[in-house]
């Protein structure tokens, strides 16, 4: 069972995520959008959406730091384990609560604004369920640990397992040994990434960072080639000089 959950599923998830994204990009570029509903309602959106998205960005950075950077590194630069945990808890807690509050506002808005609700597909609803579950489970790993007083150190269980996945030698025991809350959160997270390519979440992959570096005005040719350029051989106009 543990082998299936922590040794096989992650790779299935990655395979679905990668091939699904490629498939979606190739065959559904037209459907690749944020599907914004700001046109219908903006008052609540302007509170909820930044709260959710910026919160989520901090959460993602927190996950990357927590999972990728080994405990020994942070200790080496003089950040003790308890100190690291306090700052991670405070930052993660704030970001997590902001994310959750943001998505709560957004879901309330989606349900109560007529046009927004009628623009909501079944796909969206499924995605919202998984997304909210993932956030709630993630936040509870943080908050339960504080409330219960027994903080589970994921940096010796979850993080080594996560890193071991990349060298194809999954450290199944480490993950199986983590607390239940972490295992649930990880599973829901994997479910989220599995459905990711098939939902509107794909818009995250097209974060327009390139905008910072391109010139303002974009010119594009009608066809790929130089349409109004010199004609190909055999199409010279009457009286034009011999090509060299």
């Amino acid at each position: 069972m543990n082998v299936l959950l922590w040794g096989v599923l992650p790779y299935v998830m990655v395979a679905v995520l990668v091939t699904g994204t490629i498939w979606r990009y190739r065959y559904d570029k037209f459907g690749w959008t944020t599907r914004s509903s700001e046109l219908h309602e903006s008052r609540l959106l302007r509170i909820g959406s930044p709260m959710f998205h910026f919160g989520l960005l901090v959460v993602v950075i927190g996950h990357v730091i927590g999972l990728v950077i080994p405990e020994s590194w942070t200790t080496a630069i003089g950040l003790s384990e308890p100190a690291y945990h306090v700052q991670a808890l405070v930052l993660g807690g704030i970001a997590g609560v902001s994310t959750l509050a943001g998505i709560a506002i957004l879901i309330y808005r989606r349900r109560t604004t007529g046009p927004v609700f009628s623009a909501t597909t079944r796909n969206d609803k499924l995605m919202y369920v998984v997304l909210v579950l993932a956030i709630v489970a993630g936040l509870s790993t943080t908050l339960l640990g504080v409330a219960g007083g027994e903080e589970h150190n994921y940096r010796v269980s979850v993080s080594p397992w996560f890193r071991s996945l990349f060298v194809f030698q999954p450290d199944i025991d480490a993950m199986a040994g983590s607390s239940l809350a972490f295992r649930i959160h990880t599973l829901i997270g994997m479910a989220l990434f599995t459905i990711w390519p098939f939902t509107r979440l794909v818009h995250a992959f097209s974060a327009p960072v390139g905008y910072l570096f391109r010139p303002y005005i974009v010119y594009r040719s009608r066809s790929g080639g130089p349409a109004a350029g010199p004609p190909r051989r055999g199409w010279d106009r009457v009286g034009s000089s011999e090509p060299r």
């Binding site: 097209s206 391109r214 005005i217 974009v218 010119y219 594009r220 009608r222 349409a227 109004a228």
Partner: peptide
């Protein structure tokens, strides 16, 4: 065009021809 300049994705363009 200010719309083209505003597009973060670079999806809007002015045709060269």
């Amino acid at each position: 065009p200010a719309c083209v300049a505003s597009c973060p994705s670079g999806a809007m363009y002015k045709r060269v021809e």
